[in-house]
């Protein structure tokens, strides 16, 4: 297990590991606080729209697929396909955010704010922080699409896959484990 064996930039892996640790800590804290009020947490969670989260999972993994294709195309030297792949990946990110906005708007209309219940504090913090990464990731994808250097595209795609990875780990504890 040598640093050289890590694919791509080692610093990207430092970032990926850091992000995973932070989200894991947040989810663990939520699971811990839940023990103080399981019924309240279940009732709060029941007000979320799980289907939107499932839809977003499908969107995000498909977007990740596009980023992976773009990365491969870029390594082959196929700039056109690489740009198309990155654009589709970013579009997937935008679609994810659009669903998220609809979801948040519904929650807020129902009077579910950050301070409504400890569950919602974690809900907004975890998903909001993740959504901020999606937004940032769209910018990263756009940035690496300009110069199309293979190692930069790989780093950008790695960031995007990390966002993907975090989402599949957020999904069950926040939306589904009642």
């Amino acid at each position: 297990m040598r640093v050289q064996d890590l694919p791509g930039e080692p610093i990207m892996w430092v970032l990926i590991a850091s992000e995973l640790l932070v989200f894991a800590a947040g989810i663990t804290a939520m699971a811990g606080v839940r023990l103080t009020d399981p019924a309240g947490f279940a009732a709060a969670q029941a007000q979320l729209h799980g289907w939107m989260a499932a839809l977003n999972t499908a969107i995000l993994v498909s977007s990740g697929f596009c980023a992976a294709l773009a990365e491969r195309a870029c390594h082959r030297g196929d700039g056109r396909r690489a740009r198309i792949g990155l654009a589709l990946a970013a579009l997937g990110g935008a679609a994810f955010l659009a669903v998220k906005v609809v979801e948040y708007a519904g929650d807020l209309r129902a009077g579910l704010g950050m301070e409504s219940h400890p569950f919602f504090t974690f809900y907004y913090l975890l998903t909001g922080f993740h959504a901020a990464h999606v937004l940032f990731g769209i910018g990263v994808l756009a940035l690496v699409a300009i110069r199309l250097r293979p190692e930069e595209v790989q780093a950008g795609a790695a960031f995007w896959h990390m966002v993907d990875l975090v989402w599949v780990l957020i999904l069950p504890p926040v939306y589904l484990l009642g």
Binding site: M1, D5, L6, G64, A157, A158, H161, D164, L171
Partner: peptide, 25 residues
């Protein structure tokens, strides 16, 4: 549910992030 999440995570790490089985990473 958590096992499925694990499988998804493993697919992303191995497939999209190129973490091969060999190196131990």
């Amino acid at each position: 549910l958590l096992a499925v999440a694990f499988l998804k995570a493993r697919a992303i790490l191995g497939g999209f992030l190129h973490l091969g089985r060999g190196s131990g990473w």
